[in-house]
Structures are given as C-alpha cells and as structure tokens.
C-alpha cells in the first residue's frame, strides 16, 4: 500500500445530522484506489500553519471506481470548524491511506456485533459493507448509541448492511433508554446469543466498557481508536497509547494509533490505563 499526498476536490461538504456533524465528499482517486475500511486520512484544514497539525479522519465511504472517498466528522474545535467552512469546488490537501484497517473474521463466523457510539458509526459503515460482501453468511447486528435521537445518522446509510439494528439513546428518544453498554447487557440478559466477534468504534469511555465486557466473555474484538496525531506516518510517535506490545526491556510499552492501529485487537490495549 502506497501513501499518497493528494489535493482533493471537494464534491460536497454538508451537515448530515443537525448543524454540527458533516459529511465531506472528496474526489481523491489515488487514495480511493488503495483505501480500506478502518484506515484514515490526514487532512490539512488550512494552508497556514495555524492550526499547525493535520487532522485524522476515518473513511466513511470508499468508492474505488469513481475515485471518491468520504469522511464524517463532528465540529468539535478549531480544525473541524475550519473544515466545515470549506465549500464545494475548493480543494483540501490529504495524506493517506494511513494505518491498518479492520481485519475480516474467520470464514465460519456466525454472529458479528458492530458497536457504534456517536460519530464512530462513520468508520464502521465501510466495515459493515466489507463484512456483508466477504462474510455474507454471518449475522450482522448493529448496536448504535447516541445521546439523543436527533444525533442519529439516517438509517439509509446502514439499514441494508445489517440484519438488525439496536438503538440506544441516553434520553430514550430512540430505542433503549441508557448508554450502549447497558443496552448490550439488556439484550444479553434477554437471551440474545453472544457474538463470535465484535467491531467497535466510539467515545473512549464506551470503548473501555465494551473492551472490559469482551475480554470478560473471551469475545475477540477489533476496536478503532482515536488519538491526537502529529504525522499519521509513524514518525513522530505522538499518538502512543498504553499497549501490550513488549518494548525491549520495558514491561510498560506503548502502541501507536497511527501505524499499529487505528484498529487494534481488544487484548492489545491496556484499557485501564487509558
């Protein structure tokens, strides 16, 4: 896989939910050709050096034939605010595809749970597409949790990709009332069969809970992590998180979200130290 720096034309940059979560559609043929679900691009949001660093975003859609990629993002700070102001027809400097994508589960996998919190759903949609094509016999259940129903992305993005969608909202405006981990507990207690594998992406606190649960039940899982990043290339080592890769004579090593992730097997992260 070759990394490219590409000046991508913005085909559209529009709110997908409410006024603060956007989809950015980009003509980026070189990156699209090599991109895989779970990988990411580093976006330079401004030509100036303030903000100085690029911002990492997972692929939300990859269309190799059309040479189009899409990312989903929530406006949370200065970088994403600047990005949200970009207009159709303008260009944006991209670096990618970067990192390792989601790995497929074994051929005979019967039940897959895909667990998405908030804007984390955007990284999991191409993963679900891939699973549908390459593991068509597996039952795919999507757990999708947000604070309130108005934060859900339209179901047209994922409805056809899974057999069942189980919603949870903190305020009960859609599906289960409570956080996503409580929703999972509820369904397990109700007798839902435990999955053979899980895929998860969402806020750190959610990932920590899901990880603890998966480890306790010995369910293999692939977790897509976020981090502040410097380069995205494995050069600056700024995106380290506590991980279980032995590092020389030291027990307490770190793994790096950009090049050893952003997708990690659940057992490779020391979740309690995150």
């Amino acid at each position: 896989m070759k990394k490219h720096q590409e000046e991508a034309v913005i085909l559209d940059n529009i709110p997908i939910i409410g006024q603060d979560t956007y989809r950015l559609i980009l003509q980026a043929p070189m990156i699209a050709r090599e991109a895989r679900p779970g990988q990411f691009v580093m976006v330079r949001v401004d030509k100036s050096y303030d903000p100085f660093l690029r911002r990492p975003f997972s692929f939300f859609r990859i269309d190799k034939e059309e040479g189009i990629i899409e990312i989903g993002y929530k406006v949370v700070g200065r970088g994403t605010t600047l990005l949200s102001q970009k207009k159709r027809g303008q260009t944006v400097d991209l670096l990618g595809p970067l990192g390792n994508g989601f790995r497929l589960p074994p051929e005979d996998t019967s039940d897959i749970w895909v667990i998405a919190g908030g804007v984390g759903i955007t990284a999991l949609i191409p993963c679900l597409e891939d699973l549908r094509i390459k593991r068509p016999k597996a039952k795919r259940v999507l757990f999708y949790g947000v604070k309130t129903a108005s934060e859900l992305i339209p179901s047209s993005f994922f409805k056809s990709l899974c057999h069942e969608v189980l919603y949870s909202t903190d305020d009960g405006t859609m599906g289960f009332r409570g956080v996503i981990t409580e929703c999972i507990d509820y369904h397990v207690q109700k007798g839902e069969k435990l999955p053979s594998v899980i895929y998860a992406c969402g806020p750190l606190i959610m990932l920590k809970h899901i990880a603890r649960w998966a480890l306790a039940h010995s369910i293999p899982g692939q977790f897509c992590l976020e981090s502040i990043m410097g380069c995205g290339l494995g050069a600056c080592l700024g995106c380290a998180v506590p991980g279980n890769i032995r590092h020389g004579n030291s027990e307490k090593g770190y793994v790096h979200v950009c090049f050893e992730g952003p997708v990690f097997p659940v057992e490779n992260i020391r979740w309690d130290e995150l």
């Binding site: 303030d50 100085f52 590092h247």
Partner: peptide, 25 residues
Amino acid sequence: KPRPGNPPPRIVEACAGLINSVGLE
C-alpha cells in the same frame, strides 16, 4: 537501551507549532 517513551498525551498543538513530550521512545 530501548526506551518506551513518556506516557500519553505526548503532543499538543500550539499557535503555529506543537509541544511534544515523546520522551525519546
């Protein structure tokens, strides 16, 4: 000897720059 480096977060953006504490990993 190998060095594991400093605990995260290791970088933070500043005006036209960044502050790092990678710790020579």
